[in-house]
Amino acid sequence: MRLEDWNKALIWESEFLMNKKYYSIGSAMEKAWDRNYPDIIKNEEIDISELRNLFWTKGLKSLKKTNEEILRRYENE
């Protein structure tokens, strides 16, 4: 899997955890990373530090939007 694909997968799993399991942003990101880390390190083409940096910058930005959507949902209930 390519770097961008891994990042998208990690973001998707984090969003799932936030929406369905009520994890905070940081907890969801750590859980998604931990769950996928064994498969990430098997891929020799992936620079793990680059993926982690991408996930914690681009992923965090995306997940902040998800968090805002979740908060709006609760405010409107």
Rank of each mutant, 00 (worst) to 15 (best):
I48T: 11
I11A: 04
L51E: 00
Y22N: 15
E68W: 09
L63D: 01
K42W: 03
N7Y: 04
I11V: 14
Y37E: 09
L63W: 05
W6C: 08
N53H: 13
K20N: 13
L3N: 08
K21S: 11
D47M: 10
S24T: 15
T57I: 10
S62K: 11
E77V: 14
P38D: 03
W6M: 09
S24F: 10
L3H: 10
E69D: 12
R35E: 01
N36M: 09
M18R: 00
P38C: 09
E45I: 01
E68K: 07
E68R: 06
E77C: 11
E68P: 01
K65R: 12
L71W: 11
E45N: 11
D34E: 02
I25V: 15
N53E: 12
L63G: 04
I41C: 08
E69H: 08
K31S: 01
Y74A: 12
A28Q: 02
K64E: 06
I70T: 01
I48H: 03
E69I: 01
I46A: 09
F55V: 01
E50T: 15
M18N: 00
K64P: 05
E69R: 07
I46R: 05
N43E: 14
K58L: 09
N43T: 12
S24L: 12
E50A: 14
F16H: 06
D5W: 15
Y37P: 00
G26D: 11
N67C: 10
Y37S: 06
N7T: 14
P38Q: 07
P38V: 04
A9L: 13
E77D: 15
I25A: 00
N7Q: 05
L63Y: 02
M29A: 06
W33K: 05
N36R: 08
I25T: 09
S27R: 12
Y22S: 13
M29H: 04
K65F: 08
I40Q: 05
S14P: 08
A9G: 12
S49I: 11
L71E: 14
S27I: 02
T66D: 06
N19Q: 13
G59A: 09
E69F: 05
G59Q: 07
E13K: 10
D39T: 12
I11T: 02
T57Q: 03
L60Y: 05
L63T: 04
G59Y: 06
W56F: 10
F16I: 09
I40E: 03
N53G: 07
K8Y: 13
W33L: 01
R2K: 14
I48N: 09
A32W: 04
K8I: 12
Y23G: 07
N43K: 07
S49P: 03
Y37Q: 13
D34V: 02
Y37G: 09
W56L: 04
L71M: 13
G26H: 09
E68G: 08
Y74D: 13
N53A: 12
S62N: 01
Y23E: 00
